[in-house]
């Protein structure tokens, strides 16, 4: 009986249906454009003048790096350099009263930066995306959650006024501006909009109120290096055990 009902319904549907074309088969595949794929000359010709201009702008030397920097966990010379530039620039140039600043490990896109001339392009390589800086406030309890997350991830670039140890994937002995973390205190900190919006596993930050400074992280670095070069300073970094790995029990 059910079969018959189906048949009748279908029959009506079929004759009342105006379109008479329908898909019967589908095949989906994603093809890789690898290094051996040939290139279309016409497209290369369109790109050429833009490439020349880009190369010129990116090759501009804005400063000097005294040492090779590398990206590592739990802390690194590259991470500390970027973090302290951010903190300095927000405090001095932008007169912001912030307790600390941080960036996600994955947001730093190169593994090392060679000593010598710093070009605009090098900074773009380190930070290709236009992540802007966000300032938010949270109590010590949420800061603990954030630092635990950073600890579980092996350590992120944080500003010099933070100090903690990673013990069993948790942040312990946390010091902020030389004082132990106070779970009830309100802290103000700067980070990228990407992380503030829940990126790099920080969904617990998503609902917090924030102020987007409308300022790109990369521009802060470019400005900082240019300013210090004008002041006759070259760039440097060091490790200071701001994040320390302690032995697992």
């Amino acid at each position: 009986m059910i079969r018959i009902t189906y048949f009748i319904t279908l029959f009506i549907f079929t004759i009342s249906c105006k379109t008479s074309t329908y898909w019967t088969d589908i095949n989906i595949e994603n093809q890789r454009l690898d290094i051996y794929q040939t290139e279309e000359e016409q497209i290369k010709d369109i790109i050429e003048p833009y490439k020349i201009a880009i190369d010129k702008e990116m090759n501009e030397v804005i400063g000097t790096l005294e040492m090779e920097l590398s990206k590592q966990r739990p802390e690194s010379t590259l991470g500390n350099w970027l973090s302290d530039m951010l903190q300095d620039e927000l405090e001095t140039t932008h007169n912001l009263d912030i307790d600390f600043s941080l960036q996600n490990h994955g947001g730093v896109r190169v593994n090392s930066v060679a000593a010598g001339a710093i070009t605009v392009g090098k900074i773009y390589e380190i930070m290709p995306f236009d992540n802007s800086i966000v300032v938010m406030s949270a109590d010590g309890e949420l800061v603990k959650v954030l630092f635990d997350h950073i600890a579980a991830d092996g350590g992120w670039p944080v500003s010099r006024n933070i100090e903690f140890q990673i013990q069993n994937d948790k942040a312990t002995s946390i010091m902020i501006n030389d004082e132990p973390l106070d779970l009830n205190k309100e802290y103000t900190f700067a980070l990228s909009d990407y992380v503030a919006n829940g990126g790099s596993g920080c969904s617990f930050l998503k609902e917090l109120e924030r102020e987007n400074l409308g300022l790109y992280l990369r521009d802060v670095f470019l400005n900082h290096i240019r300013r210090e070069t004008d002041e006759g300073k070259s760039q440097n970094s060091h490790l200071d055990q701001r994040i320390k790995l302690t032995d697992h029990e």
């Binding site: 279908l10 029959f11 549907f13 079929t14 249906c17 008479s20 074309t21 329908y22 898909w23 019967t24 088969d25 589908i26 095949n27 989906i28 595949e29 994603n30 093809q31 890789r32 454009l33």
Partner: peptide
């Protein structure tokens, strides 16, 4: 069907579809 081709133009997604014309619709509905 849901397809996504990574990012940065590393992949080119390709979907080949076959359509059937005419009055044979019933068999597929069936």
């Amino acid at each position: 069907y849901i397809n996504q081709a990574g990012w940065a133009g590393i992949l080119l997604g390709r979907v080949d579809l076959m359509f059937e014309k005419g009055r044979k619709k019933r068999k597929n509905i069936w």
